[in-house]
Computed example of a mutant assay.
Amino acid sequence: MATTDDYYDEDYNSTFDYGSLPAPCDLQNTWQFGSRFCPVVYSLVFLLAVVGNVLVLCVVWRYRHSRRGPCSFNLTDTFLLHLAVSDLLLALTLPFYSVQWAREWLFGTAACKVASAAFSLNLYSGILFLACISFDRYLAIVHAVSAGWRRNTCHAQIACAVIWVACLSLAAIDIQYREVVELPRSDIRVCQLVFSHGDSQKWQVSLQLVSMVVGFGLPLLVMLYCYVRIFRALCHATRRQKRKSLRLIVSLVSVFLLCWAPYNGFRLVDSLQRLSVIGQSCSLDHALDVGTLVSESVGLAHCAFNPLLYGFVGVKFRRELVEMWKGLLSSVGLLRLDSWGQKRHRATGPFSSESENTSYSSVVM
């Protein structure tokens, strides 16, 4: 996990021979800041992400349980389902790192490898599923792909399988190289990547560049292209539709940028420093440490924002959620539903519009 990798010079953690190396910068202030900041923020993100994504999964399960067959809703709904699973699994790894920052890594080497791999897997996959949702909306609106094709989830399942496999290959690095080691000149044990001394900088920079491309640059380009084309296609829509679409498009891109751009900016500076493009100093190292900690926490909060942006803004989703709560209250005798008030499910999916049209705003508003 980047939480510890980016804060300590890999040369000191991978060779275990500190006598021949220059003394590292003092990490005590960074660790003290992280021990106060990270447990609180990670716990808050964990709670919000679990509640939001569990509600999304409950609504999806309720809807699919009421329909027959695996293709009961469209491509966007399928991507949202995988996004919720990915965000939920990512959130479930955060308590491990909260404990690490509060004390140290207490869970052993096997848990270190598994938790780190799960973190990387779901971090990459969640962002790529956001790009898939953007591309599906682009096909449906700009190119007016038929509703029947979009309801066939076979295409989405293939795309999701490719994403999971690709992200699993990236997460395999954590399985191979994650270890529990003691920080230099300290008895604190942490879970982090450990490379040989000669390859440490090369591997660290390579992984950071791959992470920035796969986990930020490529998805951002896809989202920008798709949403710009979507908005241009809606120029002839009604004024109210245009206003709602503009608000939503701006909010989706802005939240993604605000969450992940600062973190990737700090990682880029760190990579340039490791390549000796930028001079090294303890003051710069401390600024990068603290900046990476804070910006990473903001990025992780995106898994708590996704249910709000991609689920709760949808008319049908909110309606399904209300009906689910009515059913629960009715089952315990707190609410009585008349037969004429029961929800009648449609085949367009819990996150879709009331009708299969090509209005972007009606799909998610």
Rank of each mutant, 00 (worst) to 15 (best):
Val269Asn: 12
Asn53Arg: 06
Phe216Ile: 04
Val255Arg: 12
Ser281Trp: 03
Asp17Tyr: 02
Trp61Val: 05
Val205Gln: 09
Leu55Gly: 06
Phe231His: 13
Leu27Val: 02
Pro24Lys: 01
Leu248Ile: 00
Arg344His: 09
Val315Ala: 13
Leu193Val: 05
Thr30Ile: 12
Val290Arg: 00
Val294Cys: 04
Ile127Ala: 05
Asp187Thr: 14
Val180Cys: 10
Gly19Ala: 09
Ala159Arg: 14
Val40Arg: 13
Arg103Asp: 07
Ala91Ile: 10
Ile133Lys: 07
Cys160Asn: 15
Ala301Ile: 06
His302Ile: 06
Tyr12Lys: 02
Val210Trp: 12
Ile158Ala: 07
Thr30Pro: 01
Ser86Gly: 14
Met324Pro: 00
Ser196Asp: 15
Leu94Phe: 13
Ile173Gln: 13
Gly198Trp: 14
Val59Tyr: 09
Leu221Val: 08
Pro184Tyr: 11
Thr15Phe: 11
Leu328Val: 12
Ser355Gln: 11
Gly299Leu: 08
Val40Gln: 07
Val41His: 04
Arg229Asn: 08
Pro22Cys: 03
Ile141Arg: 10
Asn13Gln: 00
Gly19Val: 11
Asn74Asp: 09
Thr292Gln: 13
Tyr263Phe: 12
Gln32Asn: 10
Lys113His: 11
Arg336Thr: 07
Arg189Lys: 13
Ser43Lys: 09
Pro22Ser: 06
Thr30Tyr: 11
Gln280Trp: 11
Ser66Asp: 13
Ala233Met: 01
Leu170Glu: 03
Leu183Gly: 04
Pro24Gln: 10
Arg185Val: 03
Leu83Ser: 06
Ser359Ile: 01
Thr348Gln: 09
Cys303Glu: 01
Glu10Asn: 08
Ser20Asp: 15
Glu354Trp: 14
Ala140Cys: 05
Gln28Pro: 00
Lys244Gly: 00
Gly34Lys: 14
Ser206Arg: 04
Lys202Ala: 11
Leu80Asp: 00
Ala131Phe: 07
Glu354Arg: 12
Gly314Glu: 05
Cys58Gln: 10
Ser362Leu: 04
Ala161Val: 03
Leu220Glu: 02
Ser339Val: 05
Glu296Lys: 00
Gln176Val: 10
